[in-house]
Each structure stands twice: as structure tokens, then as C-alpha cells.
């Protein structure tokens, strides 16, 4: 009896599974599908160890919901980017959402004028965090060809913080895809989104008991544009 217990307890079932797996991975005529880089990294372990932050960044970068947001000429090229031939969905960023509440990324495709700027700010505020902004075209950089116009905002950055600028008038769909891919790369590498604090949130800060965290966060807010970058590494 005791000699039987010296060997690890292995049922026939797991024995079969192990053998099958080994045969697939190493045997002659191995199925290459099972020899991916990922499998190599995992070994035979079904677990992967990583920082949760890194994992979340990877997830964010690999599944971006875009806001269906058309302003001007660039939005036509943006539609082409979403549809056949260019198909942004191939890059895990092609699900246009009609509601800002469900979107991660807002592509600003066009000239922003005085009447629209506050509306765009409101749409941006309605998006849940973390949120990212791709400025598409020259108008979102500087006002583009309409810069001298009395009614034109000289760039999207005057209203909302922009992560990636894609120049062009309008940029080709390939350029937009490149911009989005760059954004994904930055997100996957741990870029956090700038957070705009709304005025009413500032008021809420005032109502709270002044504890250490609130003080620390309040310091980080730029009073001019109410933009703050969360830097959790330095947070108390």
C-alpha cells in the first residue's frame, strides 16, 4: 500500500491529457497551431503572471470603441476608414458607437467653430474615463485653411486635450489608421489619459473633508484648462 502512495497521484485521465498535449507540441508531425509564441511563453502552465496595470493597458489598446462623431470634410474620410477596403476593425478599433457614454476614443474630424466648441466639450465630458482623443486633420491642429476665420477655433486643443494629431487636409484613411495604431501603442505602453475635471467636480472637492488625497489631486489640476494627469505612481 505505502509504495503505491510514493508516486504522485495521477489518474488515467490527466495522464492521457498530458500525453496528448506533449504529442501535439513536440512529437513528430506536431500541429503548429499549438506552438505559438504565446504557448512558448506560457509553457504548460495555464496561468500567466503580469501586473494588472499592464494587462489592463493591453486590453484597452486592443479593444477601442470609437465615438461616431462627424463634423466636417474629414468625417467622410473617417467613414471610409471604417468601411470596406480600409476597415479599421482589423486593428481592433472599428466599432463606432453612437453614444459618447459607450465610447473610449473620440476622433475629432473637422473644423471646430465657436458654436460647436461648447457642444464638443460636452460630448467629451460625457465619455467615461479613460478616454482618448485623436485630432484628425489640419483644422484640429491649428484651424487649418480656415484659421483666419472670425468664427473658427484655432485647433481642438483649445477645447479638449488631444493625444494624437493626424495632419492632412483631409488625411488619407491610411494616415488615420496609422494615427489610431500609434494611439493603441501608446495606450498599451501605459499612457494614461489626461482627465478633465469638470467645474462641478471642483465644487464637490470643496464640500469634501480636506484629506490628503484630495489635496494632492487638487494640486495637479491646471486651473486654466482644468486638465489633470493622474499619476498614480506618485499618489500618496
Amino acid at each position: 500500500m505505502s509504495s503505491e502512495r510514493d508516486t504522485p497521484f495521477v489518474t488515467d485521465d490527466t495522464q492521457v491529457q498530458t500525453e496528448t498535449r506533449d504529442a501535439r507540441m513536440t512529437g513528430a508531425g506536431a500541429d503548429n497551431r499549438f506552438n505559438s509564441k504565446l504557448r512558448e511563453a506560457f509553457g504548460s502552465s495555464p496561468f500567466i503572471l503580469t501586473k494588472f496595470d499592464n494587462f489592463m493597458n493591453w486590453v484597452r489598446g486592443s479593444s477601442m470603441f470609437m465615438l461616431q462623431f462627424g463634423i466636417a470634410c474629414c468625417s467622410i474620410e473617417m467613414m471610409h476608414t471604417y468601411s470596406v477596403k480600409h476597415d479599421l476593425d482589423r486593428f481592433a478599433a472599428g466599432v463606432p458607437r453612437a453614444s459618447p457614454r459607450q465610447a473610449d476614443v473620440i476622433i475629432v474630424p473637422g473644423t471646430i467653430v465657436s458654436k460647436f466648441a461648447p457642444r464638443m466639450k460636452r460630448v467629451y465630458d460625457q465619455m467615461p474615463e479613460p478616454k482618448f482623443v485623436v485630432g484628425m486633420g489640419s483644422c484640429t491642429i491649428s484651424g487649418g485653411p480656415f484659421q483666419e476665420g472670425y468664427n473658427v477655433i484655432k485647433g481642438a486643443e483649445e477645447v479638449i486635450p488631444v493625444d494624437i494629431h493626424v495632419p492632412g487636409c483631409p488625411p488619407r484613411p491610411e494616415a488615420l489608421i496609422y494615427g489610431v495604431a500609434k494611439l493603441q501603442q501608446r495606450i498599451a505602453e501605459g499612457e494614461s489619459s489626461p482627465v478633465t475635471v469638470k467645474p462641478y467636480e471642483l465644487e464637490q472637492f470643496n464640500d469634501l473633508e480636506q484629506d490628503e488625497i484630495v489635496d494632492k489631486l487638487a494640486e495637479q489640476i491646471d486651473e486654466d484648462d482644468l486638465v489633470m494627469r493622474y499619476n498614480w505612481a506618485d499618489s500618496p
Binding site: 463634423i71 467653430v113 460647436f116 457642444r119 485653411p145 480656415f146 483666419e148 476665420g149 472670425y150 473658427v152
Partner: peptide, 23 residues
Amino acid sequence: GYLHRCEEQMCQTKTYRHQIMPY
């Protein structure tokens, strides 16, 4: 008026020969 980008003003400040045509 949410996309009023002053096209008329732009054209009035450009020359006939080449500058207006892109607008």
C-alpha cells in the same frame, strides 16, 4: 451654424487667380 467656417470671408481675402480655388 455649427460648421460656419467663414468661407465667404476666406474667399474675400484671397486672390482670384490661384488662392480661392482650394476653398
